[in-house]
């Protein structure tokens, strides 16, 4: 039996029972509220909320990175302060750990929902078209899934590189500033980061708009247009801001 048949039959039966149970004249159709937690829209809402966490985080992260333009001392102090924030209420680095937990949880939620929706979409069209054109879809919107996978791969690389120090293409100095600049002086590391920022920009370009739409904040044409603009601005600001540092290193503006 196809899933839709299954759905229909159980649904019809449910309704009929509730209709007849209460007597002959019963034509009220109050089937009771159905669970909505596993629906596509619930999954989308999960993606929207976790996406919002990421947007907030990358905005702060990008802001922090720009300290690189103020030199080694400023940057290293900033990195140090991050770990001291809210101490002594929290232990040294405590806030970062809280952030990491929130981020990992968001990542798990975001990715799990994305893969679930991806699977549903694939199942929703098992027989593909011989010819199919995209009429209006932007490149950004069409590359959300593979772009997301690419970003996931980048995040792993990024953590191995700058958090766990597992990969050390530019040497392994103590100073975060020197580590950063040293890495970007290796051309292919800078290229990886720049490409990742392009992917991030595209992901945010559609993702931020999509988040506002999924949260239902775009329910008139004016807000709908504004949301598209918000997506574009966030994408340029975040991806552009991040890209400034490797570009600055490559151009010799930021040096050791």
């Amino acid at each position: 039996m196809r899933p839709s048949e299954l759905g229909h039959r159980s649904f019809a039966r449910h309704q009929a029972v509730s209709g007849w149970r209460y007597g002959v004249l019963v034509t009220t159709t109050a089937p009771g509220r159905r669970s909505g937690q596993a629906t596509t829209i619930a999954l989308k809402l999960l993606m929207a909320v976790t996406g919002l966490v990421f947007v907030g985080y990358v905005l702060l992260h990008m802001y922090g990175n720009l300290w690189a333009f103020s030199g080694q001392q400023a940057f290293d102090e900033y990195a140090h302060h991050l770990r001291e924030l809210l101490t002594p209420m929290l232990p040294y680095g405590g806030l970062l750990w809280i952030l990491r937990v929130v981020l990992v949880a968001s990542l798990v939620g975001h990715a799990a929902a994305a893969f679930a929706l991806w699977a549903r979409a694939a199942k929703a069209r098992e027989q593909r078209y011989a010819v199919k054109k995209a009429v209006t879809a932007t490149l950004a919107s069409r590359t959300m899934r593979w772009g997301g996978v690419a970003l996931l791969a980048f995040v792993i690389f990024h953590i191995l590189h700058l958090t766990t120090h597992t990969i050390n293409p530019g040497g392994d100095p103590e100073s975060p500033y020197l580590r950063l600049v040293g890495s970007f002086q290796v051309w292919w590391v800078a290229v990886i980061y720049l490409l990742a920022m392009l992917a991030l920009g595209m992901h945010i370009r559609h993702g931020a708009f999509s988040m506002l739409q999924t949260l239902g904040l775009t329910d008139n044409r004016r807000r709908y247009r504004i949301s598209h603009a918000v997506g574009l601005v966030l994408a340029i600001v975040i991806a552009g801001g991040f890209a400034l540092v490797p570009l600055g290193v490559l151009l010799g503006i930021v040096t050791t």
């Binding site: 309704q15 029972v17 019963v26 034509t27 159709t29 089937p31």
Partner: peptide, 8 residues
Amino acid sequence: ERQVAAGT
């Protein structure tokens, strides 16, 4: 359709 749902 409401009556379809109601089973009548």
